[in-house]
């Protein structure tokens, strides 16, 4: 009974191949095999507000001193900007980082189920912009932001 299954499989893969080719020919979308539950809308949003709403379902945020965003005031290398978000808020469910003026503002979104409210990474920045950290704690959103200066050409500022 392996034969019919193999047929179906072949057919299926042929269709997928066709769909992918068709997609790239029309220029529909790059042929991303998006990981399951990777929030494509949020990551491809062009405006920071849209990205926040797509990610959390609301744009209601409270600025909070409990959200600590550590980023350089001036980036020496715009392709390697070290950022660190930490918080002493209880029950941290998620941390998200946005760069307002990047082509797609959402940089990363971390969701926690047992880990501390901490996230660090290095990111790319297109130009001088506000970096916004959003922390979701007990269903509410708290935020902090900082401007990171990017000098194109790499000479002083």
């Amino acid at each position: 009974m392996t034969q019919p299954q193999r047929r179906i499989f072949l057919k299926g893969s042929l269709m997928t191949a066709l769909a992918v080719t068709a997609g790239s020919v029309i220029g529909f979308r790059p042929q991303w095999a998006d990981a399951a539950d990777w929030n494509k809308d949020a990551f491809t949003a062009k405006k920071i507000d849209e990205a926040i709403t797509a990610l959390f379902g609301t744009g209601q945020m409270t600025p909070s001193a409990s959200v600590k965003l550590k980023a350089p005031a001036q980036a020496e290398n715009s392709a390697q900007v070290q950022i660190q978000v930490s918080t002493d808020l209880p029950n941290v469910e998620a941390i998200a980082v946005f760069v307002e003026k990047n082509p797609s503002p959402l940089v990363a979104h971390a969701s926690f189920s047992g880990a501390e409210g901490f996230f660090s990474a290095r990111m790319k920045m297109a130009q001088t912009s506000d970096v916004v950290a959003v922390v979701k704690s007990a269903g509410k959103l708290y935020t902090a932001k900082q401007t990171v200066k990017v000098t194109v050409g790499g000479c002083g500022g």
């Binding site: 990551f43 797609s104 959402l106 990363a108 979104h109 969701s111 880990a115």
Partner: peptide
């Protein structure tokens, strides 16, 4: 923990 990354990560 699960971290979702976008294209802006270095």
């Amino acid at each position: 923990a699960t971290t979702d990354l976008g294209t802006a990560v270095a």
